[in-house]
Simulated scan of single mutants.
Amino acid sequence: MAKRISARNPYYTGPVTDHFDGVRFFNPDGVEPGTFRDLMRWQFGSDRRARWPKWRESPFRNPRPLERVNGSRLRVTMIGHASLMIQVAGLNILTDPVWSNRMSPVSFAGPKRVMAPGIPFEALPPIHLVIVTHNHYDHLDIATLKRLQRRDKPRFVTPLGNDRIIRKAIPDADVDVMDWGDRLEFSEALTLHAEPCHHWSARGTGDRRMALWAAFVLETPAGRIYHIGDTGFHRGINYRDAQRKYGDFRLAILPIGAYEPRWFMRGQHQNPEEAVEGMKLCHAAYAVGHHFGTVQLTNEPIDQPVADLMKALDEAGVERERFRALLPGETFDVPPID
């Protein structure tokens, strides 16, 4: 019989697998997140934290997005940080939506946004699907999910364990929960697959790695999309596996920020050079970068991710137009591919 976990995990009960030990999830052949001692070394050691501006306006704030796109069109609009709106096949999809002012368990402290959401909440078109990649507060924002539920009642898709967090706050939420390798037919126009990424999870001090994290592959009539909320590069393993399993991608949506200092962040956040290598390994025709410029989580200056991305693209011989670092409100109509 399959071993099952005890009540120590508040989010998930299930059999032991190659990425779940009966209590906690883990990255196969990967690294665990840093210890409390590592955190203290980072916070109080010699690594200097760049000073970000208190506020910055985006030139692309978008109060009138399109209601939907159809046919071969694929449109991505940056909301901010890891929140994007994907429009494809008549569907409006949000990833890790956060409209709150702080990405924190409390409203009066914690990381605070320095740029407004690229689309005002009230200007959003009807949202059909919300993808929540993992439970860190800069990705799973209950206040925003409640607003979306009241307004649109979308379907939520999230990895194992995160459904318990969402349903506790929103009992009537329509939540699909997925393990790595699972397939979900959302509609005739969209099939989702949950795939590994190299990260971790926690909502507090006692629940580390008790809910799963995941990347998602979206199969649509307009092409395949590979979306990763957060990941360490992990020697490119997951990128290679995704390409072998699904073939080439029209678009990859990849994190490019929150990567310094490298000794502490390498296992959980790839840097722009690694993101470019990931784009090449998964054979993405185009890429959109996220997880930068909205809220300061780590040491690098606010503009460093984009500068490092441009340098990495040039050194890799990849045209800059193929990997876009969108500012809040900026829209990218992804070119068709043969």
Results as ranks from 00 to 15, higher is better:
residue 22 G to M: 10
residue 226 Y to I: 11
residue 47 D to C: 04
residue 187 S to R: 08
residue 220 T to G: 08
residue 230 D to S: 15
residue 335 P to A: 10
residue 141 D to I: 00
residue 84 L to G: 01
residue 281 L to Y: 02
residue 60 F to V: 14
residue 163 D to A: 11
residue 64 R to Q: 15
residue 46 S to K: 12
residue 182 D to L: 12
residue 207 D to F: 00
residue 284 A to S: 13
residue 121 F to M: 10
residue 79 I to G: 06
residue 248 D to A: 15
residue 128 H to L: 06
residue 20 F to T: 10
residue 296 Q to F: 07
residue 10 P to M: 11
residue 60 F to C: 15
residue 269 H to L: 00
residue 140 L to R: 06
residue 106 V to K: 12
residue 69 V to G: 01
residue 4 R to G: 05
residue 187 S to Q: 09
residue 56 R to A: 06
residue 160 L to M: 13
residue 67 E to K: 12
residue 98 V to K: 08
residue 212 L to A: 14
residue 205 T to F: 13
residue 319 E to M: 01
residue 116 A to S: 15
residue 159 P to D: 01
residue 82 A to I: 04
residue 301 P to R: 11
residue 110 G to Q: 03
residue 215 A to V: 02
residue 145 L to T: 03
residue 38 D to Y: 02
residue 158 T to E: 05
residue 20 F to N: 11
residue 174 D to S: 10
residue 43 Q to A: 14
residue 14 G to Q: 14
residue 325 A to I: 07
residue 75 R to W: 09
residue 269 H to C: 13
residue 17 T to P: 04
residue 262 R to G: 04
residue 278 G to E: 04
residue 241 D to N: 15
residue 322 R to C: 07
residue 332 F to D: 06
residue 242 A to K: 00
residue 217 V to F: 10
residue 15 P to E: 09
residue 201 S to F: 00
residue 217 V to M: 06
residue 261 P to K: 06
residue 210 M to G: 11
residue 66 L to S: 05
residue 73 R to D: 13
residue 275 A to T: 03
residue 72 S to K: 15
residue 75 R to P: 06
residue 102 R to I: 01
residue 142 I to H: 06
residue 60 F to Q: 13
residue 265 M to Q: 12
residue 12 Y to H: 15
residue 88 V to W: 02
residue 312 A to T: 10
residue 3 K to A: 10
residue 235 R to D: 15
residue 22 G to C: 11
residue 16 V to N: 11
residue 254 L to H: 02
residue 139 H to F: 06
residue 197 C to M: 14
residue 271 N to W: 03
residue 69 V to T: 07
residue 134 H to I: 06
residue 10 P to T: 09
residue 123 A to V: 09
residue 158 T to V: 09
residue 277 E to Q: 15
residue 238 N to K: 08
residue 154 P to N: 03
residue 222 A to F: 15
residue 317 G to M: 03
residue 54 K to W: 05
residue 322 R to V: 04
residue 271 N to H: 14
